[in-house]
Design a binder for these strands. Structure first.
Length: 590
DNA sequence: CGGTATGACC
């Protein structure tokens, strides 16, 4: 039916059929001016007071693509006795705007008018609390769940899980999950996402296995796979990732672009570029995300030239880069030490592609310049930035100051970090090591005192290694692993062997605890020793570390790769280190 | 079917 002719019918009083088609017209039109005409008609005939008309109308103007909150509010106030559905529409609409907290106000208004909230109202208002960071508001809703008789509404409880998850209350989210009478796949997926988000990545993988066991009647779906692949990326869990890949193939999800893109990212983040490329090549309709994931994979594994090449191909294929693509490219240049190329890309990004540099882009440039020793210039770059420098960017420069022994600049940089109230233990450790290297003992003592005064908590660093799809975690001076005694014995044995090969623990870098900390017991060394212990000779070792690898452990890994003839991949907070034949692919240390 | 959901700086 033609839209104009339909519309003209509503100028005169209508029969039931006409009113029916009016509703479907409201639901289908994309023209605001037609809605305005209908609005006038609804007001004139008072049909707006009837739920059957006002609900679809309010929905239409409150949700994308025609979302207009001022208009919604106007219509809402014209309804003399709004019912629960009207309120729900308003709460839901506000939940997705830049003023999500207003959803909570609407909810309170609804209570004041004695309109009983249904599970949907609660879900939407919890969503408002999530988006608006209203922690107490969310808890309030949760407290009411039993009283309102909504304790078996899967959707509401899932939204509450999500609420606790983003609030960092992993335990509470799990409690809600445990107490749910019925759990669907989405609830399970939220559990996975909750574990990943809150650092319980290994448990996220456990959930995947639990779902697959078939005992819960909820098989992993495509979203589960996306979430679990993220967890594998974080943990460098290559073998587990391969299992997920297999599952994806069996269930036909391999044709979904987002799944393929996540696979490329996962393999890249496990240091398996060949696998990443294999998946990438087979993607028929590569989008900007696919290309960026691949370029980023090249970049973080130290293949700057390949990253640039990938970018060229991408342009040839007619895919336009976005700001994240340039971040990947620039970080590729910095990891590979390609100063001129990086600068050129940074310029072209702005002139040719009109991308305004953001904090990520600047972060790469600062790293690029700091790495080649242009620390003062890097400082000037930060000071000239149009956006506010974040802690990461200062930390990057601080690392460069450490490598190049620029103490005076390092002191200035730490001031900036303190100003941002973002200084971490690692920053002080870096400064401490700079003073140590320079032999400024009185300064060393001063920093220690400062750290003590400020109560700076040093979180012990952790490393993980995957064996047969199982993740083993080690902390500094770990005593918790079941085979820890064997691990320490093996570590001593390895150190003996490496010393013969010329390895000497560099004693001028200290760990995160205090000056008595034995270098030998850094978590990545424990993980490597366990790998040597528990796998057949020649097996590749893949270690993930949450902080940056120190010079000593880097040397240790280099030597180990030669003496024991093992390929070692260590992924630290910033990048990959591929050790082979006594060498590393990176240029971080020399 | 409203709730989960692909690629970024150290």
């Amino acid at each position: 039916m033609n839209a104009q002719t339909t519309l003209s019918r509503f100028t005169s009083p209508s029969n039931q059929t006409h009113l029916q088609s009016l509703i479907s017209f409201i639901k289908s039109t994309t023209q605001t001016f037609q809605l305005l005409q209908i609005h006038a008609y609804l007001l004139r005939t008072s049909l707006i007071q009837q739920t059957t008309f006002s609900v679809p109308f309010l929905n239409r103007i409150s949700l994308p693509p025609l979302q207009n909150l001022n208009y919604s509010l106007k219509v809402f106030t014209q309804i003399s006795r709004p019912n629960v559905t009207h309120y729900n529409t308003m709460i839901r609409a506000y939940a997705m705007t830049i003023h999500p907290e207003r959803g909570f106000y609407v909810y309170r208004d609804m209570m004041r008018h004695d309109v009983r909230p249904n599970p949907q109202s609660c879900s939407f208002v919890v969503k408002s609390c999530i988006r608006g960071c209203l922690f107490l508001g969310g808890v309030q809703i949760h407290d009411r769940v039993f009283r309102d008789g909504h304790c078996s509404d899967t959707l509401l409880l899932t939204t509450l899980m999500e609420f606790y998850s983003v609030s960092g209350k992993c335990e509470d989210a799990c409690k809600v999950f445990d107490e749910m009478p019925m759990r669907d796949t989405v609830a399970w997926n939220v559990l996975v996402s909750c574990y990943t988000r809150n650092g319980r990545t290994r448990d996220a993988l456990g959930v995947f296995d639990a779902m697959r066991s078939g005992e819960h009647g909820c098989d992993p779906d495509d979203v589960t796979c996306l979430l679990v692949l993220q967890a594998c990326s974080n943990l460098c869990a290559f073998e587990f990732g391969e299992r997920v890949h297999q599952y994806i193939k069996v269930h036909g999800y391999i044709h979904a672009l987002n799944i393929c893109n996540a696979l490329v990212a996962m393999y890249s983040k496990c240091g398996q570029l060949d696998k990443a490329y294999e998946v990438f090549q087979k993607i028929p309709n590569k989008d900007v995300v696919s290309w960026t994931a691949m370029i980023s994979g090249f970049a973080s594994n130290g293949y700057g030239r390949e990253a640039i090449n990938g970018f060229r191909q991408m342009k040839t294929m007619g895919v336009s880069p976005d700001e994240q693509t340039f971040t990947a490219l620039l970080s590729g240049c910095s990891h590979a030490g390609l100063l001129d190329e990086g600068r050129l890309i940074f310029d072209k990004m702005q002139t040719e592609f009109g991308v305004v540099p953001n904090v990520h882009h600047y972060g790469c440039v600062v790293d690029l310049m700091g790495r080649v020793g242009l620390v003062e210039d890097a400082y000037d770059v930060i000071m000239s930035m149009k956006c506010k420098p974040d802690a990461t960017i200062w930390r990057t420069l601080l690392g460069a100051c450490k490598v190049h022994g620029n103490l005076t600049l390092g002191e200035r940089v730490i001031e900036h970090l303190i100003e941002l109230k973002a200084q971490e233990a690692g920053d002080y450790i870096l400064l401490l090591n700079m003073y140590l290297s320079a032999g400024h003992w009185e300064k060393v003592i001063e920093v220690r005192k400062l750290m003590k005064e400020k109560g700076i908590q040093t979180t012990p660093s952790a490393s993980t290694i995957e064996l047969k799809g199982e993740i083993h975690e080690f902390k500094v001076d770990d005593t918790s692993h079941s085979r820890i005694n064997e691990v320490y014995e093996m570590l001593d044995e390895i150190e003996k062997q490496l010393k013969i090969g010329g390895y000497d623990a560099e004693l001028n870098d200290v760990g995160s605890k205090d000056k008595e900390t034995r270098l030998s017991y850094h978590s990545e060394k424990l993980a490597m020793a366990f790998g040597v212990l528990a796998t057949p000779p020649g097996t590749k070792l893949r270690v993930a570390k949450d902080l940056r690898i120190c010079t000593d452990c880097h040397n240790f890994a280099k030597m180990l790769s030669g003496v024991y003839n093992r390929e070692v991949i260590i992924r630290d907070r910033t990048r990959f280190h591929h050790f082979r034949d006594g060498r590393c692919s990176c240029n971080d240390f020399w």
